[in-house]
Nucleic acid binder design. Structure first.
Length: 652
DNA sequence: CAAGAGATAAACACCC
DNA sequence: CGGGTGTTTATCTCTT
C-alpha cells in the first residue's frame, strides 16, 4: 500500500517533467565541451566510477525497486545510473548502523537473525530514496563513491591474486570468504566461481565474468543490466536453495530468512506470483535468471523455460551459489560501510546504537513533504510524524537514531533557521560538488537567478548570450539536461524579470550581464537554496522523488560541517567566520577565487556595452543558499552556539 | 492572514 | 512559417 502510494506519487509528480525530457538532449550537445565525462587519459572518470559502482551494487537494485517508478529503475542512461548508485550507497550506509555490531568479522556478514532490523531497513517499504537522500551531503556522497572506488580497485587487485591462488583462498571443503557455500566441493569450476566472489576478490567485473562463465551468457552486459534489476530477486527465489528463499512479505522479524539480509522481498505480488502471472524471475517478457535472457511470451512459456533450462543441475546450482555470494558480498560491504558510519557518528557524538522503539518513525521521509508544507512545527529534536498522505513512504524502522530525528529534521523549522544564517555560497557549492551536479540528475539547490548570475560571472568577460547560459546550465548540471522547455523558460523569465540581469547589445548580438549592485540588493535567503526550488525539487522532477529528495538533501546538508575539510575551510568557514563577507552572495567571495577575482560587488554592467535596458526590479538581496550544517541540525545545542557565534550573519 | 519571493506555465511580440 | 529570444502576466507554493 505504501509502496503503491510512493510509486504513484513519483508518477504523478514526474509525469509532466518526463513529458518534455526528450528535449533535453537538444541543447546538450553544444554545452558539453567542458563536460566531466572525459576519461580519455585513462583515468576513471566520475561517470565511470558511477557506472562501476552501479554494477557493483546493482545486484541489490530490487531493494528499492518497489519504491521507484519502474521507468526510473529501467532507465539506462548515465544519470539514472548515477543517481541510482548514489542511493544504493546511501542505503548501505544507513543500514549498516544496525548491522555493524554484528559484523566484526569482515568475512562474515551479519545474519538477519542477529540484526532483524537490518532486514527491515532493507525492505523497500522501510527505507526510501527520499530518506536516503536526506542523509548525506554531496561531498559525503562523493567521498563514499571514492571510497567505493578504492574498494573496488582493491578488489580487482585481490581478485587477480585470488585467481592465481585459488587454493589458498579456499580450502577444499569451504571457502573462507564464502561461509554460505556448502561443503564438500572441491576446487572445481564451481569453486572457482564462488571463490571469485569471496569478499576479498569480488568486483562487478567478476560478477559479469562469472555469469558469463557459469551460464554461458552471450551478452554479459545485458545480463548485468538485468541483474541490476533483479538479481536479488533471483537470489530470493532460487528454487534450489530454500535457505535463500525469502518470504515476500517481510515479517516483523524476518529471522527465518536465513542468511541474506539483503534478500529483499518483492512486492506484495510476490506471494501470488505463480498465480497472478508474475514471477520474480520473469519480467518484461524475459527470463531473469542470471545470465539468461530467454524471451518468454507469457508466464506459461516462462515456467516451461524455467523448468527446462534452469532445472536443478550443476549449472543452476553454481549460479545459485554465485547469487548467494553476490548477496553476501553486499552484506559484507554493508558491514564495512556500517563501521565507517559508526566511526563517523562516533566522531560526531551521535548515538547510532541508541535503541529506539521499533516503529519509531524516521523522519527521513517526512522531511520531504515538509518541504512542501511544513507548517507543522514540531518540538525541536523530535521527528515529524510521517503523514500518510504527504509521505508515501513507510517509516524506516529503527533506523539510525542519528538519522531518525533531529538530523533529518533539518528540513523543518531548524533548517529554515539555519539556512537564514548559513547560506551556501553557490560558487563554493558548485566548486565542491561540480562533478556531482554534472553527473547526478540532481537539481541544484539554487535559484535560477543565482545560477544565471554564476554562469555569467564565470564567463571570461562576464557576459553570456542566452544560448551560452543554456549551455552552461546543461554543462554544469545533469538536471538541466532534461526538462529544457521548463527551465529555459524560467531562465528567460528570470533574465527579464530581475533587474540584476542586464541585456547588452554587442556586435555578436545580445548578451546578458550581471549588475552586481542590483544583485547584492536582493533579499537575504529565506532558506537553503530556494524554498520553491527545493519544493519543486520534490514535486516537479520527472525523475521522481529520488532526485527531488536528493536535492532536498543537498539543500539541507550541503556544505555542512560534515563536508570535506576543504569545504569547511573554504566556504563554510568563510561564511561562519567572516561575517563581513556579507550577507550577500557568499559566492562572491568564492568567485574571487573562481572567477579571477571578478566578482567584486561593484561590477558595473555598463562596461559591457551600450544600449542597456534598465529593468525595474524590487531590490533584492542575495538569495544564494546557505547550507544547513548537518551538525547543527543534528545537535540543536551546536546550532545555537553557532548562531550565537555568528551574529553578524544576520543581515536584516 | 498578507506580503514577498521563486518557480512554472503560458501568451505574446519581435526577429531571423 | 517555425524557432529562438525577450517580455509580461497569472498562478501556485512556501516563507516570513
Amino acid at each position: 500500500m505504501m509502496v503503491e502510494s510512493a510509486t504513484e506519487t513519483i508518477r504523478t509528480t514526474g509525469s509532466n517533467q518526463n513529458g518534455v525530457s526528450s528535449l533535453s538532449s537538444q541543447s546538450d550537445g553544444g554545452g558539453r565541451e567542458g563536460g566531466s565525462n572525459g576519461d580519455a587519459n585513462g583515468e576513471i572518470s566520475p561517470v565511470d566510477l558511477l557506472h562501476l559502482q552501479q554494477q557493483q551494487v546493482s545486484v541489490c537494485a530490487c531493494v528499492q525497486s518497489s519504491n521507484v517508478k519502474p521507468t526510473v529503475m529501467l532507465r539506462s542512461d548515465r544519470l539514472s545510473a548515477t543517481f541510482f548508485t548514489f542511493f544504493l550507497h546511501l542505503l548501505c550506509v544507513c543500514v549498516c548502523v544496525c548491522v555493524r555490531a554484528c559484523c566484526s568479522n569482515p568475512f562474515y556478514a551479519a545474519p538477519p537473525l542477529q540484526v532483524p532490523v537490518s532486514m527491515a531497513m532493507m525492505t523497500p517499504q522501510m527505507i526510501t530514496p527520499q530518506q536516503m537522500q536526506q542523509i548525506l551531503s554531496p561531498p559525503q556522497l562523493q567521498a563514499l563513491l571514492q571510497q567505493q572506488q578504492a574498494l573496488m580497485l582493491q578488489q580487482v587487485k585481490l581478485r587477480a591474486t585470488a585467481q592465481s591462488t585459488v587454493p589458498t583462498h579456499c580450502s577444499p571443503g569451504a571457502c573462507h570468504g564464502c561461509p554460505l557455500l556448502t561443503q564438500g566441493d572441491g576446487l572445481n569450476a564451481e569453486d572457482k566461481f564462488h571463490c571469485f566472489f569471496c569478499p576479498a576478490a569480488m568486483c562487478p567485473t567478476d560478477l559479469q565474468q562469472l555469469w558469463k562463465d557459469v551460464a554461458g551468457v552471450q551478452s554479459t552486459e545485458e545480463a548485468m543490466k538485468h541483474e541490476g534489476l533483479d538479481l536479488s530477486t533471483n537470489s530470493s527465489n532460487s528454487t534450489s536453495f530454500t535457505a535463500a528463499k525469502v518470504s515476500p512479505q517481510i515479517p516483523p522479524h524476518p529471522l527465518a530468512n536465513g542468511q541474506h539480509a539483503l534478500h529483499t522481498p518483492k512486492r506484495d505480488s510476490a506471494p501470488h506470483e505463480e498465480h497472478t502471472g508474475t514471477h520474480p524471475l520473469y519480467g518484461h517478457g524475459e527470463c531473469k535468471w542470471p545470465g539468461c535472457e530467454a524471451l518468454c511470451d507469457d508466464m506459461g512459456q516462462f515456467i516451461k523455460h524455467l523448468n527446462n533450462e534452469h532445472a536443478l543441475d550443476d549449472r543452476s546450482t553454481a549460479q545459485c551459489r554465485v547469487q548467494m555470494q553476490v548477496v553476501q558480498q553486499l552484506e559484507i560491504q554493508l558491514a564495512k560501510e556500517s563501521e565507517r558510519l559508526q566511526a563517523m557518528m562516533t566522531h560526531l557524538h551521535m548515538r547510532p546504537s541508541e535503541p529506539k522503539p521499533f516503529n519509531q518513525p524516521l523522519n527521513l521521509a517526512s522531511s520531504v513533504p515538509l518541504l512542501k508544507r511544513d507548517s507543522d512545527v514540531y518540538p525541536e529534536g523530535l521527528p515529524h510524524p510521517p503523514t500518510s498522505a504527504a509521505t508515501p513512504i513507510t517509516p524506516l524502522r529503527q533506523g539510525p537514531s542519528v538519522i531518525s530525528s533531529s538530523s533529518l529534521h533539518s528540513v523543518g523549522p531548524i533548517r529554515r533557521r539555519n539556512s537564514e544564517k548559513y547560506c551556501t555560497p553557490i560558487a563554493s557549492e558548485l566548486a565542491q560538488n561540480c562533478e556531482f551536479y554534472k553527473n547526478a540528475d540532481v537539481r541544484p539547490p539554487f535559484t535560477y537567478a543565482s545560477l544565471i548570475r554564476h554562469a555569467i560571472l564565470e564567463a571570461p568577460d562576464h557576459q553570456l548570450t542566452l544560448n551560452e547560459i543554456y549551455n552552461w546550465f546543461t554543462r554544469m548540471f545533469a538536471y538541466f539536461r532534461r526538462n529544457t522547455a521548463t527551465w529555459k523558460n524560467a531562465v528567460r523569465h528570470n533574465l527579464s524579470l530581475h533587474k540584476c540581469f542586464v541585456r547588452v547589445e554587442n556586435v555578436k548580438g545580445a548578451v546578458w550581464t550581471v549588475d552586481e549592485v542590483e544583485y547584492q540588493k536582493r533579499r537575504p535567503p529565506k532558506m537553503t537554496g530556494s524554498p520553491t526550488l527545493v519544493k519543486n525539487m520534490i514535486s516537479g522532477l520527472g525523475f521522481g522523488s529520488l532526485n527531488a529528495n536528493y536535492q532536498a538533501a543537498l539543500a539541507e546538508s550541503s556544505l555542512s560541517l560534515l563536508n570535506s575539510p576543504t569545504l569547511v575551510s573554504n566556504s563554510s568557514a568563510a561564511s561562519l567566520n567572516m561575517p563581513h563577507v556579507g550577507h550577500d552572495d557568499v559566492s562572491s567571495t568564492v568567485e574571487q577565487v573562481n572567477s579571477n577575482g571578478s566578482c567584486s560587488p561593484g561590477l558595473s554592467p555598463q562596461q559591457y556595452g551600450h544600449q542597456i535596458h534598465v529593468k525595474e526590479e524590487p531590490a533584492e538581496l542575495e538569495e544564494d543558499s546557505r547550507p544547513v550544517s548537518l551538525m547543527a541540525t543534528i545537535t540543536p545545542t551546536l546550532e545555537r552556539d553557532m548562531e550565537e557565534d555568528l551574529p553578524t550573519e544576520e543581515l536584516e
